[in-house]
Design a protein around this nucleic acid. Structure first.
Length: 297
DNA sequence: TTCCAGGTATTAC
DNA sequence: GTAATACATGGA
């Protein structure tokens, strides 16, 4: 049998697939042994791979007729060089960019992004991935890839999760996040929260809508505002970013969160959400090697 | 065993 | 107003 494959080459300079798909903004991508990645987005099963000299090879294996989401999802609609040029030129920011040059912000689907980050609180990234995979297998829809082979699961819709019992959600290992996910799914499924409407709002107004959900505070709201809606001024401050800011800009002092937020709003420019993702990934990479990125004076 | 993980909501000063 | 604490679960 033959497998219909839609394969396209995207010419793009300076795209770091590893950093982009492994930096904790999306959770359904898996690294392949050959250097590529495979996963699910927009209801499609796709594979991405770097293609020399400066490009990406993209295959959408199922359904093969849908390619329209790729450019936006991969973050190619933003002028990357222009974004980088707005970053502050201090040594810490330069080091963060150098450590993962070519990292892009994806533009994700709002519901999957919101649901994923509701499940993210006080969990390790590997645990978030595992939990999301269990949720997809339990409540998403199975879709075949070709006529044989494994297939994949879609991310469950708000309606699919809204009709799940809390006990069934807890079986996915979601812990105290299970009722939060269920309530958010109900709000969206019932039309009380229209995520598409948030696109038309100012960032602060959209944030107010999101934090009205139980289990969604400023950090998770900022992740959704940045990763799904593209509000570049949204600056999620989690334990890693807080650590990065304190160590790199405040000599390791115990600076309160409010002061960190004020500093970031003033220091990192109009694309500070993008800058934040470099700081986050930089900090995590160096921590994994148990080597601090910079000596604290 | 104890501690911590891309936080948040509640309660205590 | 700011500072502790509980919240589920699993891995280091």
């Amino acid at each position: 049998m033959t497998l219909a494959v839609h394969k396209v080459s995207i010419e793009v300079a300076n795209y770091n697939l590893d950093a982009t798909l492994d930096c904790g903004q999306a959770f359904r991508w898996t690294r392949l042994s050959g250097g590529g990645w495979q996963g699910v987005a927009h209801g499609c099963f796709a594979e991405f791979a770097p293609a020399a000299p400066g490009g990406l090879s993209v295959e959408v294996l199922a359904p093969t007729t849908r390619l329209d989401w790729l450019a936006d999802y991969l973050g190619l609609t933003l002028d990357y060089a222009a974004v980088m040029a707005t970053f502050p030129k201090d040594p810490a920011m330069k080091a963060a960019v150098k450590s993962c040059r070519g990292l892009r912000l994806l533009r994700q689907e709002p519901w999957e992004c919101l649901a994923s980050f509701i499940l993210s609180s006080v969990k390790q990234i590997t645990q978030i991935r595992a939990g999301i995979e269990r949720v997809c297998r339990a409540f998403g829809e199975f879709r075949p890839i070709g006529t044989e082979g494994p297939g994949f699961y879609t991310f469950p819709t708000p309606a699919q999760l809204a009709s799940a019992s809390e006990a069934a959600l807890r079986k996915c290992g979601l812990g105290f996040r299970a009722p939060h996910l269920r309530a958010a799914a109900r709000a969206v499924a019932d039309g009380k929260l229209d995520l598409e409407d948030l696109r038309g709002l100012a960032c602060a107004e959209a944030r107010e809508e999101l934090v009205a959900l139980n289990g969604v505070g400023p950090k998770i709201a900022n992740c959704v505002l940045l990763f799904a809606f593209g509000f570049q001024e949204a600056f999620p401050v989690d334990v890693w970013v807080a650590r990065a800011l304190r160590e790199l800009y405040f000599q390791g002092r115990a600076v309160p969160l409010a002061e960190l937020e004020q500093f970031s709003a003033n220091h990192f420019g109009p694309y500070r959400g993008y800058a934040q993702q470099f700081l986050f990934h930089y900090m995590r990479k160096h921590h994994d090697a148990s080597k601090p990125p910079q000596e604290v004076a």
